[in-house]
């Protein structure tokens, strides 16, 4: 299983799934205020990240302090480290 984590791919997926895509998405880009994510689009983002990084279900909803693109990639990174058994 390929666990290599390419951060720029992660940001590109977040940008591509955003209801309001911005040319530059970085760690501080706000999911709701900058990219206009809502809980529905967040699920679609989770599914795209799971496909790309071969992860089990990512829980992006019902979490506090998951507000920026950097927060999402940190969660992905943690899942990859634990082999998806976080």
């Amino acid at each position: 299983m390929d666990n290599a984590f390419d951060e720029s791919t992660g940001y590109a997926i977040i940008a591509a799934m955003a209801p309001h895509p911005l040319p530059r998405v970085g760690a501080e880009t706000h999911l709701r205020d900058d990219l206009m994510f809502d809980s529905i689009r967040l699920i679609e983002l989770a599914m795209a990240l799971e496909r790309q990084f071969r992860l089990p279900a990512l829980d992006l909803n019902e979490s506090a302090d998951l507000t920026t693109a950097g927060d999402v990639l940190n969660l992905v990174r943690r899942q990859l480290k634990t082999g998806g058994r976080a």
Partner: peptide
Amino acid sequence: TPPSLTSS
């Protein structure tokens, strides 16, 4: 309501 897209 649970948290979603919000800081703590």
